[in-house]
């Protein structure tokens, strides 16, 4: 199976927000970072993929199967971490183990216990006594313990300190050592994504505005900083967006190499995903 996840023309209307023709593809064995502002539609898209919302139009295939007609089979094979949705907090980690044992045929008790140990999480304390970081770690352990093929993670590292984040990132990279396993994760921790994501999908105001390999973005995109005089000489087809700052102009370009050959502008900076997001959203053309 070439693609583990295909989203085609996803549309969903709310009173104050619309998802419009959202389409993207996650090839098997890869990690996709899903980025965008708060309220841009990341969570809604994820909810549609998981059928947490059902009143959308469009087609979603997971593991080559339609997500609506093969709900149960798909869900046996995916692990999720969602923002703010989990087991009732009066329960304990050991309750989750007992419950999940009866829910997933492939629940791996030993693996779950190992993650708890690795994360230093207590078995016999109610979730409500956990810190935010501990909760996230428990959610991640729960998502992984039935050997899923696809992880769908909404902000899995929010609330984690840098050390815990590194730990979790390593677990994700271990997870895809099996080339059948893939991850879709939304995150505001863009530096983490720059390291581990193979693909970046960028959603803004309910629409996908960019979906490319992370290497393509980091190696070919760049930021040009120049004076107004220099800016006037640059042809509009050579940049994607620009932004007028107080002392200079900032341009988002998509082909660093050919730009360098064409223009003599001094400052061509390496791009970060944060820069990309800001310029794509705040920039104009």
């Amino acid at each position: 199976m070439k693609n583990i996840l295909e989203v085609k023309n996803l549309n969903k209307k709310y009173a104050d927000f619309t998802l419009k023709n959202v389409s993207f593809t996650l090839p098997t064995g890869m990690i996709m970072g899903f980025i965008g502002e708060n309220g841009a539609g990341k969570t809604t898209t994820i909810k549609a993929i998981l059928n947490i919302i059902t009143d959308y139009t469009g087609e979603i295939n997971i593991m080559g199967l339609n997500n609506k007609t093969n709900d149960q089979k798909i869900k046996e094979n995916i692990g999720v971490v969602l923002d703010d949705m989990f087991f009732p907090e009066v329960l304990k980690a050991q309750d989750i183990n007992q419950i999940m044992k009866s829910i997933y045929t492939s629940w791996d008790e030993e693996l779950f216990q190992n993650y708890l140990k690795q994360f230093n999480l207590p078995l016999k304390k109610a979730i409500k006594t956990f810190s935010k970081g501990m909760r996230k770690k428990l959610e991640i352990a729960t998502a992984l313990a039935h050997h899923p093929q696809l992880l769908i993670l909404d902000e899995p590292t929010s609330g984690l300190d840098p050390v815990a984040r590194a730990e979790v990132i390593e677990i994700f990279q271990n997870f895809i050592q099996n080339e059948k396993c893939s991850i879709l994760l939304s995150s505001h921790q863009t530096t983490d994504l720059e390291h581990i994501a193979d693909y970046i999908t960028f959603i803004n105001k309910g629409q996908i505005i960019l979906s490319a390999t992370c290497d393509e973005i980091l190696n070919h995109y760049a930021i040009v900083r120049c004076t107004a005089a220099e800016f006037k000489k640059i042809k509009p087809e050579d940049y994607l967006k620009y932004r007028q700052e107080k002392y200079n102009y900032e341009l988002l370009i998509t082909n660093k190499k050919s730009f360098k050959q064409k223009y003599t502008t001094e400052v061509i900076d390496k791009i970060t995903l944060d820069d990309l997001m800001v310029l794509m959203i705040k920039g104009v053309k």
Binding site: I52, I78, V80, M85, F87, P88, E89, Y104
Partner: peptide, 17 residues
């Protein structure tokens, strides 16, 4: 308790949840 932690939404992601 279910409603407080949005369990029903999470349960919808479990097999036959």
């Amino acid at each position: 308790y279910d409603e407080f932690n949005k369990w029903d939404a999470y349960a919808a992601t479990l097999p036959n949840g």
